[in-house]
Simulated scan of single mutants.
Amino acid sequence: MADKQISLPAKLINGGIAGLIGVTCVFPIDLAKTRLQNQQNGQRMYTSMSDCLIKTIRSEGYFGMYRGAAVNLTLVTPEKAIKLAANDFFRQALSKDGKKLTLVKEMLAGCGAGMCQVIVTTPMEMLKIQLQDAGRLAAQKKLMASQAGPNSAVAESVTARPTAIQISRQLLRSDGIAGLYKGLGATLLRDVPFSIIYFPLFANLNKLGQKTPDGKSPFFVSFLSGCAAGCTAAVAVNPCDVIKTRLQSLQRGVNEDTYSGIIDCARKIWRSEGPAAFLKGAYCRALVIAPLFGIAQVIYFIGIGEFLLGLLPSRRD
C-alpha cells in the first residue's frame, strides 16, 4: 500500500483551494445565518434568510452581504487544509496493513480533525461574527433612532462599524491572545461532533460510487456525498453553533441577553426563546455547508494539489 501514502503538501493545497472557492460561493448565506442566530426575542430585524439578504442589500449594498468575507477568505485556507489533511493523517495512522477502517476508527479520525482545526477556526469565527452582525446592530439602532427622533441619544449612538484589524487590536490589548479564542469550548463542542459525523458518513457514501475497492468514485458521487454528509452534520450540530455564535458576539442589541458560558447560554436560550431557538439558522447552515463540502471534496479528489506539485505523472511508473 505504499502508493497510497498521502502527500501532505498536496492535501493542504487542495483544502485551501476548496475553501476559497466554497466560501466565495456561499458567504452571503452564512451572513444571514449569523444574523438570524443572534437576534433574540424583542427587536427582531429579519423573519427569514431571504428577508435578511434583501434588507442587507437595501441598507448596505451588494457588498454588504460579504462583510467579514476578507477574514474568512484569509483564514479558510489553513482551516480547511488542516481539517481535511488531519482527517487523512489520522485515518492513515489508524489503518493497519491496508485493512478497512472500522466505524469507530473513522469517527476517531474525524474527532482528531475537528480538534486540530479549532486552532484556526476559533479566531476566524470570532472576527467574522463581529463583522457579520454589525449590520444587524446598526439597522436596529437606526430603527430605534427613527422612532425616537433625530435629536435623541439613540441617534447619536449610531457609529461606524469596526474593521477586523480594529477588533483584533482591541481584543489583544484587553485580553491578550485569549481574546481571539473566546468561545473555544463552544467551537470544540460544535466542530468535533461535526467531524465525527461528517467524515465517516462521507467516506461510506463515497464508497457507493467506487467500482473497485482502490478506485475513485465519479466526480458527481464525491460532490453529492460531500453535500449530503455536510448537510446532515451541519443540522445535527446546529444547537452548538447557535450557542457558539451567541458566546462569540461581543456586542448585543437592545434588551438582548448576555452569557457567562455554555451552560448559562443554553439555559437562557431555552427559558426565554424556547427549544426551537436552537434550530435558528439551521436551514441557512445546511445551505452553506452542503455546497462548501461538496466543492471541497471534488477538488480534494480531483487532485489539483498533486497536479501543481507534479506528483501525478510520477504515479504512472
Rank of each mutant, 00 (worst) to 15 (best):
G226Q: 10
L224F: 14
P218T: 03
A236F: 15
L224N: 08
S222F: 01
L250Y: 03
G230N: 07
V221N: 09
G226K: 03
V242F: 13
F223C: 06
A228G: 06
L247E: 06
G226Y: 08
K244D: 11
F219T: 14
Q248I: 01
P239F: 02
I243L: 12
V221D: 12
F220P: 00
A234C: 11
V221F: 09
G226L: 05
C227V: 08
G230Q: 05
A234V: 01
Q248F: 02
S249R: 07
A229Q: 13
I243A: 10
S249P: 00
L224C: 13
S249C: 11
S249N: 12
P239S: 07
A228P: 01
V235F: 14
A229T: 09
K244V: 00
G230T: 05
C231L: 14
V237C: 10
S222E: 12
I243T: 12
D241P: 00
I243E: 04
Q248P: 04
G226W: 02
T232C: 09
C231F: 14
S222G: 11
C240T: 15
T232G: 05
C227Q: 08
P218K: 02
D241A: 09
C240W: 08
L224T: 13
S222C: 12
V235A: 14
F220M: 13
P218S: 04
I243N: 04
F223I: 03
A234N: 10
T232M: 09
F220E: 13
F223L: 08
S222H: 12
A228S: 14
P218R: 03
R246T: 00
K244G: 02
C227R: 01
L247N: 05
L247S: 05
A236T: 15
A233Y: 06
A234F: 05
S249I: 00
K244S: 12
A236G: 11
V235K: 03
F219P: 01
V242H: 11
C240Y: 07
Q248W: 00
V221S: 11
Q248H: 03
L247P: 01
V242N: 07
S222A: 10
V242R: 04
V235W: 09
A236Y: 08
T232Y: 08
L247Q: 05
A234P: 04
A236R: 03
F223V: 06
G226D: 13
A236I: 08
T245W: 02
V221I: 15
N238G: 01
C231H: 03
A236D: 10
V221E: 12
A233K: 05
R246I: 00
C231Y: 10
A236S: 15
G226T: 04
G230E: 07
G226E: 11
V221R: 12
V237N: 07
V221A: 13
V242I: 13
D241I: 01
T232F: 11
A233P: 02
C240I: 00
V221W: 08
Q248C: 11
K244Y: 10
L247M: 10
I243M: 10
C231T: 02
G230P: 01
G226R: 06
V235H: 06
T245H: 06
F219K: 12
F219D: 14
A234K: 04
V235C: 11
P239N: 08
F220W: 14
N238D: 12
A228H: 01
L250P: 00
V237I: 15
F220C: 06
